[in-house]
């Protein structure tokens, strides 16, 4: 039991990210409203981005912008002084793509509402079977 507890204390961050991701996945599957589903998708996305960014974190390291002391000629930059820029850079792209998909999803929702006057999934199914 104490093993499990120490494991949770050591890695509580990862556990909370997994919980966040579960919330997003539940929203995507179980919610009936299309916009709620999109919100669930966004929560899922941000949870994964959070996980990636947290991998790049290093204890006692600075933000990934070089200090003036390190820009002097002949100074060797130590990699342990700065957090990992690679994960930040990859996730920057992910956020950009997420806003593009979000805007497009909203446009789709508006279009669906124009045609069927509803955003609820079960009502949409009913309208579609009537046609």
């Amino acid at each position: 039991m104490s093993d499990v507890l120490s494991l949770i204390i050591a890695k509580y961050n990862y556990w909370l990210y997994v919980i966040l991701m579960m919330i997003g996945l539940y929203g995507m599957i179980a919610k009936n409203n299309l916009i709620k589903k999109v919100v669930g998708m966004n929560i899922f996305q941000t949870a994964i981005i959070l996980f990636y960014v947290s991998i790049g974190y290093k204890t006692n390291a600075s933000i990934p912008i070089i200090t003036t002391a390190d820009t002097a000629h002949g100074v060797v930059v130590r990699a342990a002084d700065y957090i990992n820029p690679l994960t930040s850079c990859l996730m920057l792209t992910a956020i950009v793509v997420s806003v593009a998909t979000f805007g497009y999803a909203m446009a789709l929702a508006v279009r669906i509402y124009q045609r069927y006057q509803t955003l609820e999934e079960d009502e949409l199914r009913m309208r579609l079977s009537e046609e």
Partner: peptide, 26 residues
């Protein structure tokens, strides 16, 4: 966590433009 660029993007995108798109769609 020190990922300042990602934070800046999220502040301008997630809290700014996404909310506006959301309200416009509603």
């Amino acid at each position: 966590m020190g990922a300042v660029d990602v934070a800046f993007t999220e502040a301008s995108v997630g809290a700014g433009v996404s909310t506006v798109f959301f309200v416009a769609a509603i």
